[in-house]
Amino acid sequence: MNHSTNALPLTSSNTALALGFTGTLGNIDAYISAVNRLPMLTHEEEIRLATALRDENDLAAAQQMVMSHLRLVVSIARGYLGYGLPHADLIQEGNIGLMKAVKRFDPDHGVRLVSYAMHWIKAEMHEYILKNWRLVKVATTKAQRKLFFNLRSHKLGFESMTQSQIDNLAETLNVKREEVIEMEMRLAGRDMALDAPTDDDDDKFAPIAYLASDNNEPTKVLEAQHYDQLQTVGLETALENLDARSRRIIEARWLANDDGSGATLHDLAAEFSVSAERIRQIESAALKKMKGSLAAYA
C-alpha cells in the first residue's frame, strides 16, 4: 500500500539491511524472527536517542528507536488477525504508526516510547482495518469505530448476541442499545457482488438485475412529462402572448440554435433600427411576460 505521511525516512530497503536480509522481505516468518532478535533499548539509551533526534534531527537515532520497537508492532498486529487481513499488511501499517510515534516522541515527558507508540500503532491498524475489512464502510464516526472494535472483541463466533449481552455492552460503552444492534447487523452482513458472477443462466439474477430503475420511478415520470409540456405547449402559448417584435427577438436570441448561440443584441438592433440597449429592454420585458405565462404550467 502507498502512504503519504510525514513519518521518518525509514525505507524498506534500509530496514531490510539493518535486519540482515539480503533478498526480499516476502517471508513474514523470517521477518518476525529477525525483529524478535533485535535488542531492546534501556531507558537511558532511549532518552539519549530521543534527545538526539529532537535536538539534532539525528536520523540514525530515529532508526535505532524504530528498529528496537518493531517487535512491538508484530505483537500488536497478532491481536488483529481475526479480521482476516494479511498479517504482513497489518505489520506494515503498524510500522508507519511506529515511525510517526518516534518522530513526535518527547523524552522529557517521562513516558516510555513503548507506551506512547502503542496509540499510534493501533491507530494506523484500525484505519487500515476499517478501510479494507469491507467494501462498504461499517464505521465512519469516532463512536462507531469504538463500537466496531469493542463489538468484535465481545462477540463469540458468528452467533447473534443475546439481549442481556447487548444491554451490558451498551452500558459498558455508554451508547444506546439500538446502536449496538445496528453495528452487530453490519458485522453480520457480507459483501455481495452486484453483477452476475458467471455466465450460467441460473446465476443471471444477481442483485443488479432487480435494483429499482429511476426511469420508471413515478415522480421521475411526472417530472419528465411536465418538462415536455413546458417545452411544447407551454412555450408556444407564452410566445403567442408576445407582440411580433418581442417574439422575433426572443426566437432569434434563444430559440434559433440548440446550443444557445443566437443573434446578438447588436444584430437585432441593426434589424429594427434601434439601439442595442433598447433590444435588451424589450428582451427583458418579454422574458418576464413569458415567465408569467409559464407559471400556469408549474
Rank of each mutant, 00 (worst) to 15 (best):
Ser4Asn: 07
Ser4Ala: 05
Ser4Glu: 03
Ser4Phe: 00
Ser4Gly: 00
Ser4Val: 04
Thr5His: 04
Asn6Arg: 11
Asn6Tyr: 03
Asn6Gln: 10
Asn6His: 09
Asn6Phe: 03
Asn6Val: 10
Ala7Lys: 13
Ala7Ile: 06
Ala7Gly: 13
Ala7Gln: 09
Ala7Tyr: 02
Leu8Cys: 01
Leu8Ala: 04
Leu8Trp: 01
Leu8Thr: 04
Leu8Arg: 08
Leu8Val: 12
Pro9Ala: 05
Pro9Ile: 06
Pro9His: 03
Pro9Thr: 06
Pro9Tyr: 00
Pro9Phe: 00
Leu10Tyr: 08
Leu10Phe: 13
Leu10Gly: 02
Leu10Ile: 14
Leu10Ser: 07
Leu10Asn: 08
Leu10His: 10
Thr11Phe: 03
Thr11His: 06
Thr11Lys: 06
Thr11Asn: 06
Thr11Ser: 05
Thr11Trp: 01
Thr11Arg: 09
Ser12Gln: 11
Ser12Glu: 07
Ser12Lys: 12
Ser12Phe: 00
Ser12Trp: 02
Ser12Cys: 00
Ser12Asp: 05
Ser12Asn: 07
Ser13Gly: 01
Ser13Lys: 14
Asn14Thr: 09
Asn14Gly: 03
Asn14Leu: 15
Asn14Cys: 12
Thr15Ile: 15
Thr15Asn: 12
Thr15Leu: 15
Ala16Leu: 09
Ala16Thr: 03
Ala16Arg: 13
Leu17Phe: 07
Leu17Tyr: 11
Leu17Asp: 10
Leu17Gly: 06
Leu17Lys: 14
Ala18Thr: 01
Ala18Phe: 05
Leu19Val: 08
Leu19Trp: 02
Leu19Gly: 08
Leu19Glu: 07
Leu19Asp: 01
Gly20Tyr: 08
Gly20Pro: 12
Gly20Thr: 13
Phe21His: 14
Phe21Met: 15
Phe21Cys: 14
Phe21Lys: 15
Thr22Cys: 01
Thr22Phe: 05
Thr22Tyr: 09
Gly23Gln: 14
Gly23Val: 07
Gly23Glu: 11
Gly23Phe: 02
Gly23Ala: 10
Thr24Phe: 01
Thr24Ala: 10
Thr24Pro: 02
Thr24Asp: 15
Thr24His: 10
Leu25Tyr: 01
Leu25Phe: 03
Leu25Lys: 07
Leu25Arg: 01
Gly26Met: 09
Gly26Thr: 10
Gly26Ile: 03
Gly26Gln: 14
Gly26Val: 02
Asn27Trp: 04
Asn27Thr: 12
Asn27Gln: 09
Asn27Gly: 02
Asn27Ile: 00
Asn27Arg: 08
Ile28Tyr: 03
Ile28Thr: 15
Ile28Glu: 14
Asp29Cys: 00
Asp29Glu: 12
Asp29Thr: 07
Asp29Arg: 10
Ala30Trp: 00
Ala30Lys: 11
Ala30Gly: 08
Ala30Asn: 05
Ala30Met: 09
Tyr31Trp: 13
Tyr31Thr: 12
Tyr31Phe: 15
Tyr31Leu: 15
Ile32Asp: 07
Ile32Arg: 11
Ile32Ala: 07
Ser33Gly: 15
Ser33Met: 13
Ser33Pro: 00
Ser33Tyr: 06
Ser33Ala: 15
Ala34Asn: 09
Ala34Pro: 05
Val35Gly: 10
Val35His: 07
Val35Asp: 10
Val35Asn: 07
Val35Lys: 12
Val35Cys: 05
Val35Gln: 04
Arg37Cys: 01
Arg37Ser: 08
Arg37Asn: 11
Arg37Lys: 13
Arg37Gly: 03
Arg37Trp: 01
